[in-house]
C-alpha cells in the first residue's frame, strides 16, 4: 500500500490533471454532432499519436551504442508519427468535404 501512497503524493498534480481532463473531455466531446463522429474518431487517432513524445524522450536518453533501445525508440517515434500525420491529414480531408452549399 505504501507504494500507492507514494505514487499518489508524487504525482498529485498529474492526478488533478487526469480528473479535470476526464470531466472536460466528456463535456467538450459530447457536444460534437453525429454528423462529425467519423472525423472526431480520426482526429482522436491523431491526438493519440501524442505517444510519439514518449519515443522522442526515450531516444534522447538512449546511449548511441545501445542499438536495441535505439531501434525500439525509432519504432515508437515512427508508429506515433503515422498516427499524428495520417490522423490530422485524413481528418482535414474529410472536414473539407462538409459544406453548407456546394
Amino acid at each position: 500500500m505504501d507504494m500507492v501512497y507514494q505514487f499518489f503524493l508524487e504525482n498529485l498534480t498529474e492526478i488533478y490533471l487526469l480528473i479535470f481532463t476526464v470531466i472536460l473531455g466528456f463535456e467538450v466531446i459530447s457536444k460534437v454532432p453525429t454528423v462529425l463522429h467519423t472525423p472526431l474518431m480520426s482526429g482522436a487517432n491523431a491526438i493519440s499519436g501524442v505517444v510519439v513524445i514518449g519515443g522522442v524522450i526515450l531516444l534522447r536518453n538512449t546511449p548511441p551504442d545501445n542499438y536495441l533501445m535505439l531501434s525500439l525508440g525509432v519504432l515508437a517515434a515512427a508508429l506515433g508519427m503515422v498516427n499524428v500525420v495520417g490522423g490530422f491529414a485524413v481528418t482535414d480531408r474529410m472536414l473539407e468535404m462538409f459544406k453548407k452549399r456546394k
Binding site: T21, V22, G25, V28, M41, A44, N45, I47, V50, V51
Partner: peptide, 10 residues
C-alpha cells in the same frame, strides 16, 4: 496524459 484522456473520453 491530456491527449490520451481526451481520446479515451471520445
Amino acid at each position: 496524459i491530456v491527449g490520451g484522456i481526451l481520446v479515451g473520453a471520445a
